[in-house]
Amino acid sequence: MSRIVCKKCVLDSDMPGIDINEESGLCHFCETYVPFSAQEKSDYLEKMEELFREYGGRGNYDVVFALSGGKDSSYTLHKLKNEYPFLKVLAVQFDNGFISDNAVENAKKMCELTGSDYFKLTMENEVLYETFRKAAESRDAFPRLAKYRASDICNTCISIIKQKLIEEAIVQDAPFIMFAFTPGQSPNPIIPLKANFIRWSRSIFEKQLQKIGVEDKDEKFLIKNEVIESMGKEGPRMLHPLCLWDYNEGQILESLVEIGWNPPDLNDSNSTNCTLNSFACQNHLEKYGIHPYAFDIAGIVRSGDMSREEGLEKLHQALSQPLIEEAAKKLNCR
């Protein structure tokens, strides 16, 4: 059967697991999609503000913020501090061994502009390279749904960031952890993290690492058990405000450039900060036939924040061969 593209988003019948209803011309996700109403978004934002007022000002920081230096997290930090200037923010940039110099400069600049503290989370490059190489060589370490959300390499990297940010929030007694997830990436704008769940998600990631062949005995990637033991039953809340705000990539880039954020010199349509991304995408496409940004882009298009044409163009843009070769060399992959 010939390839059919969903009439509303960018998912198509050639992607494993995607069925297009021949009558409606829509994929299952578009058929069942119920977007947040304006009222629901406003209620969530009100709830977030209530939480800031109720739990803020108690610990060393109010928010531990995942700042990659890319456009989404830079924009979210800037907007957050504009709207809630009273929040004390620790912005954590994870140096995964592949962040561009430009992303580091941008992250530092955004912290200066917003009065946030900057912390660069570093690990030994060789350890990271070996881990990402094993993730690239692995198959099925992550569940099927996760394979649609991100590549195996990105899932590994994002999981490390989540584990270490939760750890940092507990150590700093910060009530909130914030990620700049887009409407296509974020399941829920407010997620309370309970001690039991933190323990369980640690155990899930530990097993995923084992499946790719990594034993993290020193807890370099996993939340330290002693930190979990030191917390009460109530953990920090994970917040995703970007999925409640209007999202327009062009306008976001324009507003960032106006305040001094430097556009990246990376030739990667899906990342403005990571030089491993193109390799990770190619690796995922080769292994599973799934473009790891398809679901994310489809979500943004479905929510009306990006035109379908723009989404399709982004999805089918060729990956950067020089970036792929550079990353393969670092990882010692073919």
Partner: peptide
Amino acid sequence: NGIMDSIGLLE
């Protein structure tokens, strides 16, 4: 069994 991860569980 490769069906859920922690994000999936929250959903």
